[in-house]
């Protein structure tokens, strides 16, 4: 049916290292999206330092939450929706392949104020899995750009 296993390296041939850059003036430590990207590349032995020929720069990660349903009985929040949006650039040997590309994913979760600390933990776990999905989406998007580069 035409399906084949995807290639081992997410990089165009002749390029063996990709550097992932991210900086935030107000928070410390890397968000899960950046950690997942680096770990995926590490597992494929293609994670490079700032001198690497391929460079993936995560420009902006924005997490937002809004109320999407309210219990009609007591007006309390019943459901929140989380959205994470990422903007990134990708260049190979200084030539820009992707410029201010944006991706976003959303999840909703129900809220009950008798489990407030639990909801906080659920929000945190949802954000982590959304960041992991975005990391995979970015690598998929980079692979598609590389194929175009190869053609």
């Amino acid at each position: 049916c035409g399906f084949h296993l995807q290639g081992a390296s997410p990089l165009p041939d002749g390029i063996d290292r990709m550097y992932v850059s991210y900086s935030d003036n107000y928070r410390v430590g890397d968000p899960p999206l950046v950690e997942t990207l680096r770990q995926r590349l590490r597992e494929r032995h293609v994670l490079g330092d700032s001198g690497a020929p391929a460079k993936l720069s995560i420009e902006d990660i924005e997490n937002r939450q809004r109320i999407v349903s309210v219990s009609p009985v007591d007006g309390q929040v019943a459901e929140y929706e989380l959205t994470t949006r990422v903007a990134f650039d990708y260049e190979v040997n200084g030539a820009s392949q992707l410029e201010n590309e944006t991706l976003s994913v959303s999840r909703s979760y129900s809220f009950d104020n008798t489990e407030r600390l639990g909801a906080e933990q659920e929000q945190s776990e949802l954000l982590t899995s959304m960041h992991e999905e975005l990391a995979n989406l970015i690598l998929l998007r980079v692979a598609t750009a590389n194929e175009k580069l190869a053609r």
């Binding site: 939450q65 929140y80 989380l82 959205t83």
Partner: peptide
């Protein structure tokens, strides 16, 4: 309001909505 997912400078007013990186 409820359905506004316009990106606003600040997260919405109720404090629980302040998102912290996990």
């Amino acid at each position: 309001d409820v359905y506004d997912d316009e990106d606003r400078g600040r997260s919405s007013s109720s404090s629980f909505d302040t998102i912290r990186f996990p």
